[in-house]
Design a protein around this nucleic acid. Sequence first.
DNA 1: CTAGTTGCAAAGAGTTTGCATGGCG
DNA 2: CGCCATGCAAACTCTTTGCAACTAG
Lengths: 134, 134
Amino acid sequence: MSKYQTRQRKELLAYLSAHADEALTARHIARELGNSEISLSAVYRNLNELEKEGLLRRVAAQGAGREACYQYAADEHCREALHLACRKCGRSFHMDGETADALIARVAERDGFQLDRTETVLYGVCGNCREVPR
Amino acid sequence: MSKYQTRQRKELLAYLSAHADEALTARHIARELGNSEISLSAVYRNLNELEKEGLLRRVAAQGAGREACYQYAADEHCREALHLACRKCGRSFHMDGETADALIARVAERDGFQLDRTETVLYGVCGNCREVPR
DNA sequence: CTAGTTGCAAAGAGTTTGCATGGCG
DNA sequence: CGCCATGCAAACTCTTTGCAACTAG
């Protein structure tokens, strides 16, 4: 729980909410905030706190590197939605709500498996990236 | 592509195929094969090769640690299936084929998103672990 | 015998932590 | 002013790599 409202924290949150559809690495964020002079450790510390508070979702690395990716999950709606992550552009999307509900119900019924909405990220290629292969 | 059939390689493969339903870390494997005296680096090297050959799937860490988990994916059927990973027991299961096909079709239609079967792992709690909460 | 493999130790990459300094309230 | 947060560097963890010794074919 944030007690103080430091310059670094403010700019970090501003950046995150402005890029809520992207999965970002700690280093990426620190670099983008270069002007703001924020240390990598401060980024990590704040990211960890935000994750505990549930404002952020930590998703596994996608590409070659093993860095963890963090993504803003501000509202209830976003926390409830199943996420689709594009392996080409890194953006992520919310799966259509009805599709998600149907999927969860069907998996529970046919496989006896209870999906966790917040942990699950489905990978693939988004519409934009498919239309413009290169 | 493995050219030689070393003792370590044989025992590693034997262990993997005997635990095809679990997602294992390199360290876990090395420890379990303790009697066989296999070095951690040999485990990593073989795991990487097997992954390139497509016999293994590398999934992101699930628990607290950041270790990558590897899972045997011997047959075509397993490579094509969507995987459900239980966050309690670590086992993984194949989603019912019809459900998977329907999901992929529906996501493509409603969200314009093309799911990648091999990259996607859905997290949740399996039937066994739900019945026995503790 | 020859080339692929292993084991060890050292190097890398990503993340966390200790501690002194600095800044919010 | 007091306490939380930052920055730096060192510590840690996981993974990869260089190299000499070993071994399958």
